[in-house]
Design a protein around this nucleic acid. Sequence first.
DNA 1: ATAATAACAGTAACGATTATCGTTATTAAT
DNA 2: ATTAATAACGATAATCGTTACTGTTATTAT
Lengths: 144, 144
Amino acid sequence: MEATRKSKQRDAILQELQGRRDHPTAEELYFALKDRWPALSLGTIYRNLTQFCQTGQAQRLPGRSAEHFDATVQPHAHVLCLQCGRMSDLSLPPPLFDELQQQAEAEFPGELLEIKLQFNGICAQCAAIPQKAETPAAMRQGSE
Amino acid sequence: MEATRKSKQRDAILQELQGRRDHPTAEELYFALKDRWPALSLGTIYRNLTQFCQTGQAQRLPGRSAEHFDATVQPHAHVLCLQCGRMSDLSLPPPLFDELQQQAEAEFPGELLEIKLQFNGICAQCAAIPQKAETPAAMRQGSE
DNA sequence: ATAATAACAGTAACGATTATCGTTATTAAT
DNA sequence: ATTAATAACGATAATCGTTACTGTTATTAT
């Protein structure tokens, strides 16, 4: 009992997640699928994402406010832009991860199940956008 | 204007955070300080923790449900026990972090402000505790 | 002392996520 | 093919960590 059954919605959600190179939040997936699945519920997204994470078909990544999801579970790094909130992959040399894992296991007396390496910063696009002025003086020189 | 003023509560919160080797959540700090500061408000904890993070006196770390706070901001790794939720430090060789940072900067066209390396797993204490039985058969062999 | 206001305690509001509940759809057995 | 059992759904309420608001207190400068 408690067998997992087939579901068109679940297939669509996983396919959408796997087909993206960014790492969408539940809400982003919801809007991306709304066109093809007008009756889709946000609860269904969350329910299935949780299941994916439990079965090793996805992992959660901490974002600014909401969590992001990634269908690639093999160790790799991420970058989160603190400005726009977008998350992207960062492919560091796999041997680096092996070394991190080894060093960590050598020091930690327990079981290490997952490794998360995340850089937070400002992406090139956001860095190019002039920021909100901090002082009245700066505002007078600004573009608006 | 907007100058930051002295505050006994803020000092107490920062001191408590700095004095701990674990990385408490806002609520944990709250209960830890309640004895000495009976009138302390949870909002005050959050308000000051946010300020600490803005001024570089602390950093946020993603936990199971709530966020954890760490008064040490220089790059180091963490382990989160998915069972008990406790977070602890993991001191990997600093050169490793330098290499991670270099590799990341070489690949990412933007500004990398912080690096978070976190392992999730099961700590030794929790691993020693017999888990909830999964089957009726296993329950009959269990300790309760 | 007095005035200005940052920071407080208390509490309401918010937002992401989870749980509930009645209905639908998948699966297996008849 | 029907039927029965129930996993999964859509809709919505509840939860909970966090933030925002409000009137009061305490710090700082005058």
